[in-house]
Design a protein around this nucleic acid. Sequence first.
DNA 1: GACTAAAGTTTCATGGGATGGAAGTTTCTG
DNA 2: CAGAAACTTCCATCCCATGAAACTTTAGTC
Lengths: 253, 253
Amino acid sequence: MSPARVESGAPTALLERAMEILSCFDPKHSALTLTQIAEITKLPMSTCHRIVGTLEAGGFLSKGSDRKFRVGTKLWTIAQHAPLSERLRESALPTLARLYEETGENVTLAVLDRGQALYVDRLVGERSIPTISRAGGHLPLHTTGVGKVLLAYQSEKAIEQYLSQPLPKPTPQSITQPDALRKDLAEVRKNGYSITRQEMTRGSGSIAVPIMRNGKCVAAVGVIVHLNRLDVNRLVSTLTDAAASIAAELDGH
Amino acid sequence: MSPARVESGAPTALLERAMEILSCFDPKHSALTLTQIAEITKLPMSTCHRIVGTLEAGGFLSKGSDRKFRVGTKLWTIAQHAPLSERLRESALPTLARLYEETGENVTLAVLDRGQALYVDRLVGERSIPTISRAGGHLPLHTTGVGKVLLAYQSEKAIEQYLSQPLPKPTPQSITQPDALRKDLAEVRKNGYSITRQEMTRGSGSIAVPIMRNGKCVAAVGVIVHLNRLDVNRLVSTLTDAAASIAAELDGH
DNA sequence: GACTAAAGTTTCATGGGATGGAAGTTTCTG
DNA sequence: CAGAAACTTCCATCCCATGAAACTTTAGTC
């Protein structure tokens, strides 16, 4: 028995290890050398080398001329057939494009995934302000516009469960008191939209609305704007139209 | 030794099998039952069950209430960090959105991948005509606007290699004669854009231009329009601007 | 609601593929 | 051009994947 297996918490099964390796690729690590992968996963070099080699042969990873590995086109191709891409993103994109053209601001589309807001898509231009959200990225529910909407329309039980965990506070304006958040979420449900002001990033705010289907909130669309451009009435009305249009597109299929 | 391993052409290694299973998900099969997966991969049910179970536990697949498996959000998230998504798509999206708004037509963005045109993104609305191309899908190089561009800017050797294989002919208008294609491609290089007329789909044509970076064609943007709306001059000029804008965006990073 | 065929799940003895330390090779770096 | 770091190959050992068979659940039929 090799010691590494007993001592480290590394996964034992080959497949789990392979998934672990693929999971190394995140927003901060889109290109990794073999050594870096071995370090992150704590796998022996030779084992890592073999698995990475197989993944590369299958097109799941690809090695650049800089000796760094990146996510391969095969994996990307498969992922395009996820319901997330195929139905939601595809249906929403034209509307998001219009929204982007109309407002000139950062436009984001998100769903609830593992207790966080998963950004399915975003449109960012030079005109709009830089943001942390990115397609494929996760952010907390209580500090983002789309997140608050997604949370507000969950069952009371799910909301309480979310509130019962320690909540990150990325800025001083972030609301992390359960009671304050409960009130905030009730407001969201009443108004049909959420607002955040510097709760995730200093200097910017956001507005988001739900995309409803069969009485359930399946996704949220939002815009992120500079604080002094936060024209609530105008944006809410534009967003509500967009959400209705996306919902109609979804039902059309 | 179990007979299946020797007799069938099924992959032997676990990881290859897992990749095989994930590869079952394509444009025609975005949701599959366990039995279907076992049929396609020709794997024994029990083996298939175990691997699929592990993939599901890792979030690479997800089981719906209809007992069908779909590509999971974890896999999708990882794929978003492919250079294809992270750099190209992200940089191009605002420009594609503008292009879509301006023309109201089907807009597509593609790269060369394994001898085919890989559609990185597309924007389709109700106004535009239905197409076969879809994000994550592959189509031949010689029958599509973006494909011709991608092929035209390859090395002569690569072009000859492409022409040496049997070329599919989806419509009577498809050009499959090597000589005719060579002339066509020379024309593309001379003009800086490609045109197709009913070479992939009856009734529609397309125009595409290259996105150049460091003297190399890294991608192609195109529009697909109804034949009688094929206003070449106007579309070429709009597309050329868009390509330049995307190239600038790519260099900006 | 009983009956049944199909789909899905669990079990378990077996041996072949995965394992990882060590040695060898290539590629950076100063 | 050393020396180190990164990468690749090797191979004896043995653990874990394997898949047939038995079992359970689900869906469809009368």
